[in-house]
Design a protein around this nucleic acid. Structure first.
Lengths: 248, 248
DNA sequence: CAGTGGTCTAGACCACCGG
DNA sequence: CGGTGGTCTAGACCACTGT
């Protein structure tokens, strides 16, 4: 017998229904390419309107769990690579998803005069003001070994800032941004390219100078579509692989 | 005065409305962070129901043109990098989006016995059958200069195939897949990593052996969530940059 | 408080697919 | 043809935001 929808639950009904269906996919009650019940049948089963049913199915289609075929039905998608792909994640979350223990070594934290490139990415006016920008340079570790060299830039509200002690204690800047500044990263533009390690980068990453690196540059936006941060990460070419899910 | 919605148009109303709003963003009538009219106002203006309005707005939100704030309104997103980001595109489309003229030189086209890796990506049973797989190796050009070396693998229905002449004439495999086999690429899983050019790769790409390359491996799925192709592209590290849009 | 987006209902007609 | 998903209507109540 199917789990039911509780109209008094704090979760919306379409969301409860999506969870029920996702659960049935996860535990194998529904297998890849199986049809799920039709929208009219689901209306009967769960006593919610078709609009709500469709809202739940829409969500699962966007998340990649189901696909529709006009005139035929709605079916379970075969799940390929791990889920959570092409989602906006912090380095910390990224490592956890890959099954590695994230770590960091803070190399430098302080205010600098931003370069033209950094100013553009942070959307700062090209003024003569001594716009000071918080710069944090960290060696990022996965299971204790160097995975990448990360340099991030922030413009924080008013006289507020992030200290080395805070960062060492909390570990994740995203957590600080969310809890202290109520900024939630919701979107990002990222570019990836290849580059070669300078002597300094090489020694920090424990590789030879001239080794190939994967360079990621990312601008992250808040829930209000304002820039939160600009981040450069140099990943060790031999240890890191980028994963993306594309749709049409 | 706003453009209007034609109930007899072959396009659905929510889609027409989305086009109208997208146009207003494109031509600057609506600027970044401007509020658009409220959903009740849009009901009045365009004489469609609120459900339809919301369907149009949902579409634009997913496409990154608008964002909502509960209790405040719906606003225009600042557009950052060029559109079409993180969408599933063929090499041909990718080059066009970057403003380059796509080109190709077919190096080899024929049937091979797939390696274990290729067989896994194409989801072929690890049987003893002499599963023959179509392999196409092409040098891909942008504005006439080598951008990447592409090797793709296909399992096509029955006795059907793709010939060199066909490919040379049409230019894009995606067009052949769509027009001849009615297969529409709708989703893909992609990984990116760094590698170094072998002597053969280097000479084809007109770079020095040992130069850094960006290696993309992609499995593409049809509208029925079946594997269509497995593609490897080696991009010249000095000429190609990968662009992605991430959401949360 | 009034106005916004978020959720939901109970209908309706259409376009597409299969037998 | 009956069943499927795709679109659409005209309402309703709720949760959140600002003043």
């Amino acid at each position: 017998m199917p789990e039911l929808i509780d109209p008094n639950d704090f979760l919306p009904r379409y969301y409860q229904l999506a969870n029920i269906l996702r659960e049935q996919i996860a535990n194998g009650k529904l297998e890849a390419h199986d049809p799920i019940p039709s929208e009219r049948q689901l209306e009967e089963i769960y006593s919610v309107s078709r609009t709500t049913i469709r809202q739940a199915i829409d969500l699962l289609v966007r998340q990649g769990f189901l696909f529709r075929e006009h005139g035929r039905g709605t079916f379970v998608s075969p799940q390929k690579l791990q889920k959570g792909i092409s989602e906006l994640t912090s380095f910390t979350e990224d490592m956890k998803q890959r099954g590695l223990v994230p770590g960091q070594k803070i190399l430098e934290i302080g205010y600098i005069q931003p370069s033209e490139k950094v100013r553009q990415h942070l959307e700062l006016a090209a003024s003569l003001e001594t716009d000071q920008v918080l710069r944090i340079e960290r060696l990022r570790l996965g299971d204790g070994v160097p995975m990448g060299l990360q340099t991030s830039f922030y413009t924080l509200p008013d006289g507020q800032t992030i200290t080395r002690e805070e960062l060492e204690e909390v570990g994740s800047i995203y957590r600080i941004l969310q809890e202290k500044f109520h900024l939630i990263p919701t979107e990002a533009d990222e570019t990836l390219e290849v580059t070669l390690a300078t002597p300094r980068e090489a020694s920090l990453l424990q590789i030879e100078a001239g080794s190939p690196l994967l360079l990621s540059e990312r601008t992250t936006y808040s829930q209000y579509r304002r820039v939160i941060e600009f981040v450069k990460i140099l990943y060790r070419g031999d240890r890191y692989r980028y994963i993306a899910k594309l749709t049409r």
